[in-house]
Amino acid sequence: MRLWIVAVSLTLLSGYVSAETPEEKGLSIAVEADRRDSGFGDFTAHMTMTLSNRQGEKSVRKLRVKTLEVEGDGDKSLSIFDEPRDVKGTAMLTFSHALKPDEQWLYLPALKRVKRISSKNKSGPFMGSEFAYEDLSSQEVEKYSYKYLRDEEINGLDSFVVERIPAYKYSGYSRMVVWLDKEHYRPQKIAFFDRKNKPLKTLLIENYQQYLDKYWRADRMLMQNHQTGKSTLLAWRDYRFRTGLSDRDFNKNTLKRAR
């Protein structure tokens, strides 16, 4: 979290010395967004994913998520699957990092087995949905390089449009374009481009609610895949912040007893 102080002071300083480059402006927007969202401590929430294919057939996944903010590193999280029924009790423990590969374990209740997951699967689909693992992992400033593109209005809000390029290995994207509203620095829309730089997916983020008078979380995230015609709607509910989670709630024992 030190980096943003340096970056912000550099940006402020550069304002006096010379005009800010698009890269500097892009970074300072990301740093500010990160600053505004830091200090939440921990949260728990329920998530429902509705997967739709081109024919409109739907299937539903339900999970519960516990997340712990880690200072100076990526967050720790524990996801517990409730649906589909055949994967009920499956749980996933993730220690995410900015540039180092995430550490990830999956608990398979039928065998009572904890399996380490290869860190290269970042770009893989999460539970058959249009969300990749990397879309759902904790967003650290260092994960991308940035470039401010333009200002634009979206959802009636004045926004920055920023391009970001993954700095971590094994991403499925060449770049993303993010719309953040100027008032609260909340992502409103993200366009994803595949490794060949062709438009791949668009994520629309809607219904932001504010928690603890500070932290904004969206109730609805709709991911549309332009290449396959499939889409996934992520609906969040029961957000609870500062529930008293600590490091002790994120280890292989808590993974195995997660119900």
């Binding site: 290869s118 893989g124 094994y170």
Partner: peptide, 14 residues
């Protein structure tokens, strides 16, 4: 060992 080819031929298949 287990070696995983993620996203064979730009599909979702591992």
């Amino acid at each position: 060992f287990e070696y995983t080819l993620v996203g064979v031929n730009d599909t979702a298949i591992d």
